[in-house]
Design a protein around this nucleic acid. Structure first.
Lengths: 208, 208, 208, 208
DNA sequence: AAATAACCGAGACGGTACGTCTGGTCTTAAT
DNA sequence: ATTAAGACCAGACGTACCGTCTCGGTTATTT
């Protein structure tokens, strides 16, 4: 997803779609090799065999470029129906942790989040490119659990949204914190312990 | 806390202790004004009315300096006995959230965490200067809850440690994620919802 | 005068003659506004409401374009018969000085001469487009003076050519140097002093 | 001669005088190899084994740097007493022509003059660094000729100054024009013809 | 009338240099 | 030995132009 959602100007030479792909690929490669702080626009351009101007024509800067380069990785996240809410939660936890262990995301994700605290447009970009991709899994998981009868349907829509947000922050926050701050592995054991804690908490809130 | 634990050399001009404080103060001020990415060593030096050399004699670089400058803010975190585990948890959540709302921490915390993914010594510094300061509150809160009879004493030490780590990652992770990634406020309502979820989860694990 | 003396290809859309004029006009305007070094092909194209491609189809580069744009100004130089060699010389000096005071020529002439020291084709273009236009005045003036009896007819053709070249370099050189290097005005007084010096010198060489 | 005539700040690391010399030397070498228009600050810095910042700390840009780099060559101009005004003039003409034939000056002199038409500070720099160095030879030559009795002492100082300026513009202008515009060699024959013309002109003005 | 061919505008392309900024080091004189 | 000051090297920044290329479209001449 390029930066500009331009009105597809009809005139002039069209932008190279190959360049787009090469740049994002090069960005990920550079992240792996150099990490966020050592990554430079010039290096990305060189790897992509593209002029620096071509980068800047599409992305305002390093932040925007990296968000887009990393965002596509979050498309890998899926939620196959594992038969129970517990299995689904544990699955998504392990899947998300695996994604965070990848060097591209490991070095980049927190960095762009840090930048986004001073840049609203960057925050919006992160939200639409990354956060929403994750949150959709939570919503999907809840629907399945409700269909299975593991969770109640919530009457009030805004309460339902608040609860989904809470669960999302708890899951994503715990996994990110464990992985990047505590720097401990998210293995099956941890995932199991976390899932138990979460589901008991959810079950408690469902009591009459 | 200065970087070098120098062997207190006896000869020559002694280091100015005022400089240390001025530098850390200037670092926080610069973080507030410029944010992490725009903060420069030269700017900090200018604000602190100190030569750049003086900075580099004490800290290896921007990362280390910022960790130390921000770490002291985490000393504010306290856990007054509010009478119940629920009150204690909610208190620490709100307190931690308030700290993350401050522009210094908001812009710096995730940034240094991101850097730490490629720098073990930085990670160790973050752990000892920041993470351990937070984790101690979890341990303290558990002890109080156990003394009150709200939680059981755990027989196995390593299980106890694992559980404490899990709870810590859940609390800190959720608050950080809510604040910085979701960019939504941690108000009393959210804190209450989160506390309920967490305590129900904990209670469930205490059942026979 | 366009760059290419194309073989007048018969087929296809012919080049716009309006574009040629608009480009040269725009080039002079840009020279006045921006000066030689700040003038860009893109700016000229924009002013002329023409695509950059259209410029490059006609001229090899900035140097060639500017020579042609400025050359036409040298067509203004004339040598009306003022009745005496002294009056003719003084007239041409003032006329040439006035041309050099124009911002277009002032900023461009020495620049293209400088470039021509490393580019033979450019030097040839300057010679045919500019220098020869000036030199013809010297030849014309000499003929008139000879017709009036103020100067002798020279027997040897090559000597005659050498002398014309010398006089040309002296006149043009002195005026250019006074105007652009010394940056002093060529007013009637200076022109008079210079003319006196030159004519006495010429007269001396005519003695038996 | 460095750009800044700073008040020789007492504090801090002093500027490297070796760097100054290396930069000017590198500039001349780059002029020889690349010519004025292809010369870049980066290339000069590389040749001088100096950081680009070091260049910009001393000179505002390419123009100023080149003027200073070339100016020193004009110190070579001398006026040994050759016994007669004619010999002195011819000597200085050939000497100046030889200087203009050098690739450094050939490519650079007219270029900076062209730039100076839009930059007064550059014009002043050229005047003090180059023009005045040449003009002093004219003044010296006139004094010698007057001492020898070849020229009269001029009563009025301002007239004397005007005449010196005129002679200077004629000599320098003719040589520059012959060399760079006409692009013909200034050999002994041309120098002789020019000297004859000039001296006859001067002699004429000395008549009662 | 259709085909051909060179033109036109717009604007993206790979490159190169710009002049500035920052990081981190080094050299002074002074403390 | 440390300090403030500031010069030093190295290298990335984001911008501006260069001269080329690629589009869709526009005139002309030639069939």
């Amino acid at each position: 997803m390029s930066s500009s959602d331009s009105p597809t100007s009809r005139t002039g030479r069209p932008r190279s779609t190959e360049a787009d792909a090469a740049i994002l690929e090069a960005t990920r490669a550079s992240l792996v090799d150099l990490g966020w702080s050592k990554l430079t626009m010039g290096d990305v351009a060189t790897r992509a065999k593209v002029a620096k101007t071509t980068l800047y024509r599409r992305w305002a800067g390093k932040n925007e470029l990296v968000v887009d380069a990393v965002a596509v990785l979050f498309d890998e996240l899926e939620l196959p129906d594992r038969g129970s809410l517990a299995a689904d939660v544990q699955g998504v936890v392990l899947q998300f942790a695996a994604l965070l262990e990848r060097p591209e995301t490991r070095t980049a994700l927190m960095a762009v989040v840090a930048e986004s605290t001073r840049d609203d447009s960057l925050r919006r970009r992160i939200r639409s490119a990354i956060v929403d991709r994750q949150k959709r899994l939570v919503l999907l998981g809840r629907e399945r659990a409700q269909a299975r009868g593991e969770l109640r349907y919530e009457a009030d829509a805004s309460t339902a949204a608040r609860n989904a947000d809470l669960i999302f922050d708890v899951i994503a926050g715990a996994v990110v914190h464990r992985t990047l701050v505590s720097a401990e592995p998210v293995d099956a054991e941890w995932a199991s312990g976390f899932t138990t804690l979460l589901l008991l908490g959810l079950a408690g809130t469902q009591e009459p």
